[in-house]
């Protein structure tokens, strides 16, 4: 009998422990994506064609049509700007709140829990509430939501059409602003928690030493704390980025596609194309484009962190 070395046996066993995970993800992630890719290359653009199941390969036709489609073009711009401002907003609000809470004032715990609170509520619900808050009402006589609040506070000049606005500045539809605010509200608590955890993890001795050397608190933040928070920022960006690229529930319940698709996103278009218009192939193509967008963000990150691990 061959004596297998303890460590080798351990490795083998380790692999077997992973096997169920690998197999199930192999099917549910990679296999199913493959299925969707296959559909996206087909002519299954009606229920009856899907039912017949006769596979006719049309190559990239569904994709070409999609990129010529003005609605989809709008969606891509919307996704870009939404992601950009959403991430920026969550990061800056998150870090600001974390710094404020890290001062260890009385009542910090209460504030901290409060800022985390929105994460616990489903998007479907918060979407509805936000759609009320930013409903413009009929101006000037019958304002609603924020516009009404402005009126009560005597700030009529700030009244605006919010998510029904069709104004856009270089492809950035201003109607997205309320949606971005809602999304920031929901998830900045999460970035706050991550930053706070990072700040709390900093060795106090380091800071004390800096203080002894006469560093101002601003210097301490930028020279000591900020560099430590950088990897946190990166992973927060990854998490937020993939949430925003596939965002659906919140926008769907808050504004829908909006006038002239000003608040439309690929996930809504995919849902409507697939389930309303029965265009399964085109719907699959949208899903795959979404996946590719996510992959463009994620894969370099995954690969680089893998390389870093290897070099360690």
């Amino acid at each position: 009998m061959i004596q297998i070395k303890g460590s080798t046996r351990r490795r083998l066993l380790g692999f077997f422990i992973l096997l169920p995970t690998l197999i199930s993800l192999g099917i549910f992630v990679y296999g199913f994506i493959g299925w969707t890719v296959r559909v996206s290359f087909s002519n299954w653009n009606s229920f009856s064609k899907l039912m017949k199941g006769e596979y006719i390969f049309v190559g990239l036709r569904n994709y070409f049509r999609l990129f010529e489609d003005p609605r989809f073009q709008t969606d891509l711009w919307n996704t870009l700007f939404f992601t950009l401002f959403f991430i920026l907003g969550c990061l800056s609000l998150g870090i600001l709140l974390a710094v404020l809470l890290d001062k260890g004032l009385k009542g910090s715990r209460i504030f901290q829990n409060l800022f985390l609170f929105p994460m616990a509520i489903s998007f479907v619900v918060t979407g509805t509430v936000w759609s009320w808050i930013f409903a413009p009402g009929i101006l000037p006589k019958f304002p609603q939501g924020m516009n009404l609040l402005y009126k009560l506070l005597g700030l009529e000049s700030l009244q605006w059409s919010w998510y029904t606005s069709t104004v856009s500045i270089f492809h950035f539809n201003l109607a997205l602003i309320p949606v971005i605010i809602a999304a920031i509200w929901q998830l900045s608590g999460y970035t706050m928690a991550m930053y706070l955890a990072g700040l709390r993890g900093i060795d106090q001795a380091l800071i004390e030493a800096a203080k002894v050397d006469g560093a101002t608190s601003r210097q301490i933040f930028w020279r000591i704390k900020f560099p430590i928070l950088r990897p946190i920022t990166l992973s927060a960006m990854i998490i937020l980025g993939h949430i925003s690229l596939k965002i659906f529930d919140l926008v769907y319940s808050m504004t829908g596609s909006g006038p002239n698709n000003v608040t439309d996103v690929p996930a809504i278009y995919m849902f409507e194309t697939t389930f309303r218009a029965n265009k399964y192939a085109t719907g699959s193509a949208i899903a795959i484009v979404m996946l590719v967008m996510v992959a463009v963000v994620i894969v370099p990150y995954l690969v680089s962190s893998m390389k870093r691990e290897v070099s360690k």
């Binding site: 992630v29 299925w35 996930a267 697939t274 996946l291 992959a295």
Partner: peptide, 9 residues
Amino acid sequence: FIPYQSVLF
């Protein structure tokens, strides 16, 4: 990271 839409069917 995959969008659930891409595996729904």
